[in-house]
């Protein structure tokens, strides 16, 4: 009797372990544990045993039953896994995926987000101001009185004053984001760390590196002890974060009436890698960020004492920076709504 039970167990286990799918397993289960299964019948035979033998053999029969059940269960999970793997084998995983329909953000937005984020780490707040501006904020408060020759470098678009009370030449489309210096500073005491992104307008003929509408990010910092080296350090940090550590940066002297000393920043042209191309006027360098220490006359105009506070200001040529970042060779690409361009940016 015992031998019979052990034989049943052995044959069941070996069959179970060889089973390849659930159907086979089900058949094996029926064959041994079904109503007329081999084990079921063997257990029925137990009643014929002598009384003293019954507990011992009954225990063994139970063990055989649970062993068979457990083996079936474990084999079932092995088979399940194998079958899942097989589904993967059946499909062509090299076929392209089905992408969700997600759009694209404009490169200007992408770079602007980075700029705002980087300056945030330096404690700069972001602001916003009007594009329809007055001569006062755009020029006069920036130490550019009427008839100043520096106005030639920023040919202005004037608004039609017809049917309004505005004086001729007073209301313009801002030519530079620096117009926001006066607006913010006359209302806020130092310390100040501000950036202002925005669109500017100039009477300018359009070409690959110039537009009559262009974006800048103005920034200024005013405090009790601001140094020229802080300006160099800030520009260097920001441009490296934006353009990667390999970017080559050089500084040069320049003149804007609202800064002294005046600093211009060039980066090596990414379009031609410094070799010279039409975008960088064959110079290999792209002028990206005029800046300087805020002129005492500007500080005075907003009521600050230039003996007590100093500051620096800069204007990132955002449109140009964007084209440089993505090695685009024409500023006009930024206002071209062709999806074949836009779809390249994430």
């Amino acid at each position: 009797m015992e031998e019979n039970l052990i034989q049943i167990k052995n044959s069941a286990v070996s069959l179970i372990l060889e089973a390849q799918d659930q159907k086979e397993l089900d058949e094996i289960k029926l064959q041994f544990l079904g109503r007329n299964g081999r084990l079921t019948l063997a257990i029925k035979e137990l009643s014929k045993l002598p009384k003293d033998k019954k507990p011992e053999v009954g225990k063994l029969a139970n063990e055989v039953k649970s062993t068979i059940e457990e083996t079936i269960a474990s084999q079932a999970s092995v088979i399940g896994k194998n079958q899942a793997e097989k589904i993967i084998e059946k499909i062509d995983i090299t076929s392209p995926g089905i992408k969700p329909n997600i759009g694209h953000l404009h490169p200007l937005s992408l770079v602007l987000s980075d700029v705002i984020e980087i300056f945030k780490t330096l404690g700069f707040q972001a602001a916003d101001g009007p594009e329809i501006e007055t001569d006062k904020y755009n020029f006069e408060m920036l130490n550019i009185p009427k008839d100043h020759p520096a106005r030639d470098t920023q040919q202005t678009l004037y608004l039609d004053i017809h049917k309004s009370h505005a004086k001729p030449g007073e209301i313009i489309l801002r030519t530079q984001m620096s117009a926001m210096q006066g607006r913010v500073m006359e209302k806020t005491k130092p310390p100040l760390r501000v950036i202002v992104p925005g669109k500017n307008y100039r009477y300018e003929q359009v070409d690959a590196s110039h537009g009559f509408e262009f974006w800048q990010v103005e920034g200024f910092l005013v405090d009790t002890n601001v140094r020229l080296t802080d300006l160099f350090g800030t520009i260097d940090y920001v441009l490296q974060k934006l353009m990667g550590e390999k970017i080559k940066i050089k500084f040069a002297t320049t003149n804007f009436p609202f800064v002294e000393p005046g600093v211009d920043t060039y980066i090596e042209c990414t379009v031609c890698k410094g070799k010279g191309c039409s975008f960088c006027k064959q110079s290999g360098w792209s002028e990206i960020m005029p800046s300087g220490m805020i002129h005492p006359n500007v500080l005075k105009a907003v009521g600050f004492d230039p003996k007590k506070v100093s500051g620096f200001a800069f204007a990132i040529g955002l449109s140009r920076l964007v084209t440089q970042r993505f090695q685009m060779d024409d500023l006009r690409l930024l206002t071209n709504p062709d999806l074949r361009i836009l779809n390249q940016f994430y």
Binding site: L112, A127, M180, R183, D223, N225, F232, G233, A252, T253
Partner: peptide
């Protein structure tokens, strides 16, 4: 003095001093 000393010969520093925390006029939450 600075331009003849050479702008590219200057060391670079990060501004010291207090970080302004008060929200300024014209602030915009981008």
């Amino acid at each position: 003095v600075a331009r003849l000393y050479g702008y590219n010969n200057f060391p670079k520093t990060i501004p010291e001093g207090e970080i302004p925390t008060k929200t300024i006029l014209y602030f915009k939450n981008y």
